[in-house]
Design a binder for these strands. Structure first.
Lengths: 336, 336
DNA sequence: CTGAAAGCGCTAACAC
DNA sequence: GTGTTAGCGCTTTCAG
């Protein structure tokens, strides 16, 4: 129905000025005489002119776009972070482009493409672990990159103190009288995903070790966080004579599964079994789960701010942002 | 560290051909002589050349980008849909750009900008209700648009049979012996968001009406789905002598809140209170919630496929995709 | 089959 | 202050 989008030339003609002047009122209005400015502005209004984003980007070699590449878990944690990222980017008039990686080839391909094709001004890599080759490529490209969850030498990052998180939980459980620790963790088989589970487990185990308590193999399960496998894993830990008296799960969703298994087995929480999760997702409140809060949304905000800062300050040394962890106590660990 | 990204001219020079020919091997390889093609390909390899996406888009006036604008609920439902959208777009080498609307001005601004600035080839509008003026603008712009959840005259859409969903639940509850219905719904105050709650409520109420049962005002609460308000609303319905014997919630998260309140009040589910949710999010399984499954991911897939189809077939009449609903029965309604 | 040349719409020197 | 003129990097007629 519409004939054609107006260009800056149409505006120029209508306002009887040069295209350059139109461009100026768009970008440096103060450098244009008031009368002409008024004429141009009204011409813009009449024509309903909007600068074509791609042409601007192309001429200016700048894109106002940030790419977020992430293993596309349907997880709340991903969502919360994305929300944080979106809120700051939107405020700064940057576009947010999502690249969902579902395989190692995807990841490889995205990185290569993004480096070469000049699609984005910066990249946020969520929960991704890259091969050395790719890291080098990224580094050489000069593209601003911020890692979240992974900490890569020479790059900006937002990291979670996973080890401390593990020991924080262990300390808390120990203080509450629990003495037979168990662990359930989501150890993704995806080679490109970050591995925070191992770190949390490490911190957890070593705290108990410092108290002379060892985490028994048969009280640990790690694997894919899919219903069947994880439930089986949890059941195997709980449905035995020498079961642990507390269980730390690397995510809230897993912790909730534990809660459910406990009910099925007639094990009372927190008396017979203390349960602690990780993430503090909204659902944790519903089920009264004690969990570690890692300010997911804030980590998104930080990542976005960092990448924007990096774009402005290409020379500065890498900045490492650390997210503070807090234990949010609820009924799943309360001592009777 | 890197000098400069190679251009098509560099490749042309190295391969001793014209830039046009390089462009051809990139786009219509069959039209180039094998020997030259080989030379060019190897030059591309040597130079690690990647076409600049923005330059291509600009020259070709086509962007390979789809915008998704949505009220950025941190909701699982949004996420699931996004996942569906992302998977098909990725497969077709389209970029996915997120526009998070947090206010009516945001929405207005995004629409105007997207229409004029030629940033995207198409738009998916999630759970958004637009003013007539904006609808007209969109229509005149000729930009391909697909609505999800809202059904707008003259546009493609993916819709959920909310009314049928409501009556489906009512029918089920009735068949299971429940006779005093109640309803808890998330009625967002955001004027730009779609209102599916009302439709679900409508279908629900009218089914009961057809059985001679009226839904009492004091057994209905609608409001923002935030912890405090909704819990208060639910409590008010349940903590009274004449409370309903079943409650239908417009979303699973609300339904879970109901479950929690019931526990607090010592009301047993499903004996004293049947509870049915909507969405069938992963958590529903954890808490044994009977709920309506609306294939969220599939609706995303459908939306993405539709917009891609529309881009190819600008002339075809609007297509309306309807998502089938199924009731997923779990323990929150089982009759003892 | 291939090269020359003209854009795509805007920005940014460089003169006036 | 403002117009002129070259690009930005790739695609796409149009000749040959």
């Amino acid at each position: 129905m519409q004939s054609k989008q107006p260009t800056i030339y149409d505006v120029a003609k209508l306002a009887q000025v040069s295209p350059a002047t139109v461009s100026r009122v768009l970008n440096q209005p103060s450098m244009v005489a008031p009368d002409k400015k008024a004429r141009i502005l009204s011409a813009i209004e009449i024509l309903q002119f909007v600068p074509k984003a791609d042409a601007v980007a192309f001429a200016r070699q700048q894109f106002k776009k940030i790419g977020v590449v992430a293993p596309f878990f349907t997880e709340t944690s991903f969502m919360e972070r994305l929300k944080g990222i979106a809120s700051v980017l939107t405020g700064q008039h940057y576009e947010l482009v999502i690249y969902a990686v579902q395989s190692i080839e995807d990841l490889q391909g995205y990185i290569d493409m993004l480096i070469g094709s000049k699609r984005v001004d910066g990249l946020i890599l969520l929960c991704l672990s890259l091969s050395d080759a790719m890291v080098t490529k990224l580094k050489n490209s000069g593209l601003p990159v911020c890692f979240v969850e992974t900490d890569v030498q020479g790059f900006d990052s937002v990291v979670i103190k996973n080890i401390e998180g593990g020991s924080l939980v262990a300390e808390f459980l120990f203080a509450n009288g629990y003495r037979i620790p168990g662990f359930v963790g989501e150890a993704s088989r995806r080679p490109y995903a970050a591995h925070s589970t191992e770190e949390r487990l490490g911190g957890y185990a070593s705290y108990f070790a410092s108290k002379g308590i060892s985490l028994k193999m048969e009280h640990v399960w790690t694997g894919d966080n899919v219903a069947k496998a994880s439930n089986a894993g949890i059941m195997k830990i709980l449905d035995r004579p020498n079961r642990p008296d507390c269980l730390f799960a690397s995510s809230d969703t897993l912790a909730i599964r534990i809660l459910k298994c406990a009910v099925q087995l007639g094990i009372t929480v927190p008396d017979e079994l203390g349960v602690v999760g990780f993430d503090d997702i909204e659902m944790a409140e519903f089920v009264n789960l004690t969990t570690v809060n890692q300010s997911l949304e804030e980590s998104g905000v930080l990542a976005a701010e960092t990448i924007l800062w990096r774009i402005k300050e290409p020379g500065k040394p890498p900045k490492k942002n650390t997210i503070e962890l807090t234990l949010h106590q609820r009924n799943s660990t309360e001592i009777l």
